[in-house]
Design a protein around this nucleic acid. Sequence first.
DNA 1: TACAACCCTGACGTTCCGTCAGAGCAAGGG
DNA 2: CCCTTGCTCTGACGGAACGTCAGGGTTGTA
Lengths: 257, 257
Amino acid sequence: MKEYTVQQLAKIAGVSVRTLHHYGHIGLLKPSSRNVARYRFYGESELLRLQQILFFKELDFGLDDIARILDGPGFDPVEALEAHREQLKKRAERLDALLKTIDKTIRKLKGEKIKMSDEELYGGLSKEQANAYAEEARRRWDPKLVDNANANVKKWSKEKWKAVNAELDEILRQLAALMGTPVEDRKVQALVTRHYAYLNNFYEVKPNMYRGLGKLYVEDPRFRAYFEKYRAGLADYLNEAIDRYCDNTPAGKKRRG
Amino acid sequence: MKEYTVQQLAKIAGVSVRTLHHYGHIGLLKPSSRNVARYRFYGESELLRLQQILFFKELDFGLDDIARILDGPGFDPVEALEAHREQLKKRAERLDALLKTIDKTIRKLKGEKIKMSDEELYGGLSKEQANAYAEEARRRWDPKLVDNANANVKKWSKEKWKAVNAELDEILRQLAALMGTPVEDRKVQALVTRHYAYLNNFYEVKPNMYRGLGKLYVEDPRFRAYFEKYRAGLADYLNEAIDRYCDNTPAGKKRRG
DNA sequence: TACAACCCTGACGTTCCGTCAGAGCAAGGG
DNA sequence: CCCTTGCTCTGACGGAACGTCAGGGTTGTA
């Protein structure tokens, strides 16, 4: 039977020795045996448990939660592992897509240094898209405000557009990374809020208009249904947006070196 | 110019009020103005900055790093993207490894389930544990004796296992009850001796095999010093021992009581 | 004017480790 | 057999990024 010292296990699992000590102290992962000199030794099952721990840690569970999960009465390792495997697979696929996108983006950024027509100004949000948003906003809230906003938008500088596009891109990318996460999740909430804060910024809407938005997305129960629907089509939407981003993204918005 | 109170900004951005306080304290995001009553007020630019902060935070940057990024002379988006890509790549690789491990594990677990009944035989000590002990014993002492012992062990009846388990349980319980008692105490000595006699019993080892371990703990004067030193940690040690005992009890696991 | 709902400033608590310090083992070489 | 090198141990303190009171003002509204 294989046994690992602290350092060996640490290296295998990619954590620090201190982490293993810590896990031992809080009873999360104890060595399978100890030396006369109290040296720690871990077996295969500890390695597996550590993997599970790290897995849940990736999902942002606290260590005590992890302990409850792993040591809970109804914990069927096979079942749990199969569920996790599915999650992992999805994550891996998403990561893969993200990686490709980023590669594309980097190539684009490196290649097409300076080339930006007026049309490209609209970048992350196509004219039609912007109009679509405007349309919806018009339907939903105050038409005058929206028209006003659009008028403002047209006066925006290139710089502002760049910044705004970049932000939308960021938000979308992160939302994509969270695909499959429950809507109630704090991260999703935060991102959605940011997304709408972005829209708010985009349209330079007044607070009272924003109240409706905020409520819809953050407090209103309708938000749930809306986002469910939204999420279903999110992948396509994002791919389009990302492609647009790659094709339209002009050279660096700069600062520093 | 639109102004937000702490709570308003917090809600919009999906962070806590305390977080805004904190960011103010460390100089990462300061309110654009303050009341006579020192109430904080944030403007549009603070909202934007906060969103940038949150973006980098999602990427696991520390707050001081974020400050350096945002307040620094400038930064290169390509560079940032490439760094980000590296991070994602590592993550993807780890995910991949995890997936493989999980697949292996699932297969293993499914396979082993069938053989569970066999494992039940081992009672207080899991098969691996038993084998681990055996392995060590084999290394340390006479291989033939160990094999012999194992052969014997396999013929033990459930009744015998129960009895043996009960004894270990009893010993540990009494040791726990004596926690804090000086090592020199006759009772402690007796129990420690019984503990090792239990191991002895388990392997049905001969006295000479036991020499390496038993003498060190019970007769050798070095033991005295050693144990004195570790007496402070005795509680932990015992708890660990007891936990190990519980963890390895298969079928009808009794975890905690 | 009362009262809920905000806001303030300390200041201590928490999680998850990083990082010494002071010491003990393990093993190969001289 | 000693020496050196490389692990390992146990505290104990530190620190990042807040959470969570306590104790006490402020504001808007009924």
